[in-house]
Every structure is written in structure tokens, then in C-alpha cells.
């Protein structure tokens, strides 16, 4: 099976592990990630304003290309996924917004939100299946206590992202279980790490990230797993000695394909 893949800028630079293992693991599990041609940066954050058109066009182009191939569009970076999925929903729900987007982007070939947008975790859960992954695990992570960090972007806004229950999600915990490790539930798993504020206010980012890692540690976590490069950066920088790993690294390790 082939799906369209939007890697995003950070996955080509600072977060190569997230990208490389996403492709390898998917291939190993029978899904080829076909990189969208000439993709452009998603912008990192979704602008909620209804009159922000240009900032959403890169997402629309990617969605459109996936539509032309009749493939779902998968990304692994939480931020890219959030921006693309919110853009797709805005096009579906807001006809005025959709028509303005299409006026920018070849109105004769209008895009109306047809593409299915999947996060890599959803690809694993809904397309491949955690059961199947469990069967393919050669290095089960038995005995390891791993805390899932959802942050904000994977889950919210819940109505749009619709990946899981916003306040009590299970997708990453089920993923951790499928790899043979023990998930650690802690309440800050869906609280913000500080995100881009790290640029302006190191103190605020530090306060937010420390809270996440200390809460995970308090509940017995030995490592935190995330899908977002910025979360990883903030947690790593401020989280003391708590190891922060990408979901794809963990997956590759369990599947025995990590170098």
C-alpha cells in the first residue's frame, strides 16, 4: 500500500530520526510513504483566523496532490499534521474560506477537502493495526515504563483532530503496549510544553516543560515518547535527565530495524 507523505521542514534537518524511521518502519510494515513533490513548509502553526488564506496554501497544495493520487495524506510531525488537518477541516466547513483558497490555487481544479488526513499513529492504529505491529515486534520493550507525551497539537482542537479523546487519549499508550513496554499515565501528557514561546521566553518554556517531565517522572516514567520535534526540544532542554525519544525511534527499536 502507498500513501502520500508530508515530512515537513524539521524532519529534513533537526529531526531526521523522526523521518528516517517513519519511512523504514512503514516500509517494514507494508506501507510505502511517497513524499509529496515540491512540498513547502506548513508554517508550524495553524492560524485560526478565517481571513488568513495565503498561510494555508502549502497545506492545500499537499492535500491536492494527495487527492490527485487518491491517497491519504500522512505526516508524522504533530505540527504539520495539525496544520494540514485543520486546514482541511476549514475547507470542508467554511464554504467562503474554501472558495477563496481555490481562487488562489487554480479555481478550475477546486479542492473541497476530499483527502483523508492521517497522523502516522493513526496509520499504525487504523490502517496497519497495533495487533499486526505487535506480531512483528522482535525486541519487545518489556519492563520499560514509557510516558506518552501528546502535547497540544496531536489532539486539539478535539472536534477537528478527532484522533482520540482529548482529555483521556489512549492511542499512544496502546502503541507503547504493542511494543511490549508499559505506558505511564500522567496528567500533563496533554498540557503544552511551551511550544514556540521558547524563542521569546525561555522561562515560560522551561516552566511548562519541567512540569511535564516532572509529572511523568513522578508517575514512574523512565522515558517520554513524542511525535513533535519542538516538544522534544523543549522537554530535552528543560527536562533534566529524562530521555525524550520519537515514536518512530521506539518503533524501529522494537521492530529490530534501528541502526
Amino acid at each position: 500500500m502507498k500513501v502520500s507523505y508530508f515530512p515537513g521542514c524539521t524532519l529534513k534537518t533537526k529531526a531526521k530520526d523522526l523521518d528516517v524511521y517513519a519511512r523504514k518502519c512503514a516500509e517494514f510494515l507494508g506501507v510505502t510513504l511517497e513524499e509529496i513533490e515540491n512540498w513547502q513548509c506548513c508554517g508550524g502553526v495553524f492560524t485560526t483566523s478565517r481571513d488568513e488564506i495565503a498561510t494555508k496554501l502549502s497545506s492545500v497544495r499537499a492535500l491536492k496532490e494527495a487527492k490527485s493520487k487518491n491517497q491519504p495524506l500522512v505526516s508524522v510531525c504533530s505540527a504539520c499534521h495539525n496544520v494540514i488537518k485543520q486546514t482541511n477541516a476549514a475547507i470542508k466547513d467554511d464554504a467562503e474560506f474554501a472558495s477563496r483558497v481555490n481562487n488562489y490555487n487554480a479555481p478550475e481544479d477546486a479542492y473541497n477537502g476530499e483527502t483523508q488526513v492521517l497522523h502516522y499513529l493513526e496509520l499504525l492504529r487504523d490502517v496497519i493495526g497495533f495487533d499486526k505491529i505487535k506480531e512483528k515486534v522482535v525486541n519487545p520493550l518489556t519492563g520499560r515504563k514509557i510516558a506518552a507525551y501528546y502535547g497540544c497539537l496531536l489532539l486539539r482542537p478535539g472536534k477537528v483532530m478527532a484522533m482520540d479523546d482529548v482529555e483521556n487519549p489512549t492511542i499512544m499508550e496502546d502503541f507503547i503496549r504493542a511494543l511490549g513496554a508499559e505506558p505511564v499515565i500522567y496528567s500533563y501528557r496533554n498540557e503544552c510544553c511551551g511550544g514556540y514561546i521558547t524563542l521569546e521566553s525561555k522561562e515560560l518554556a522551561k516552566a511548562k516543560s519541567e512540569k511535564v517531565t516532572s509529572n511523568a517522572k513522578d508517575k514512574g516514567a523512565e522515558a517520554i515518547v513524542t511525535a513533535c520535534p519542538l516538544c522534544k526540544y523543549n522537554l530535552q532542554k528543560n527536562g533534566g535527565d529524562m530521555p525524550i525519544v520519537y515514536i518512530t525511534e521506539l518503533l524501529a527499536e522494537a521492530l529490530g530495524i534501528k541502526e
Binding site: 513548509c41 508554517g43 508550524g44 514556540y196 521569546e200 532542554k237
Partner: peptide, 18 residues
């Protein structure tokens, strides 16, 4: 002045967008 070598691009583009 705000950068360090680990800072992901994502932070920069997000901040500019906001």
C-alpha cells in the same frame, strides 16, 4: 540571538507565523 544549535526550524517558522 535567540538561536541555539538544537532549536528546530519548527519553532522559528511558528514564531514568525504568530
Amino acid at each position: 540571538a535567540m538561536l541555539d544549535e538544537d532549536l528546530p526550524q519548527q519553532a522559528i517558522v511558528s514564531a514568525f507565523r504568530k
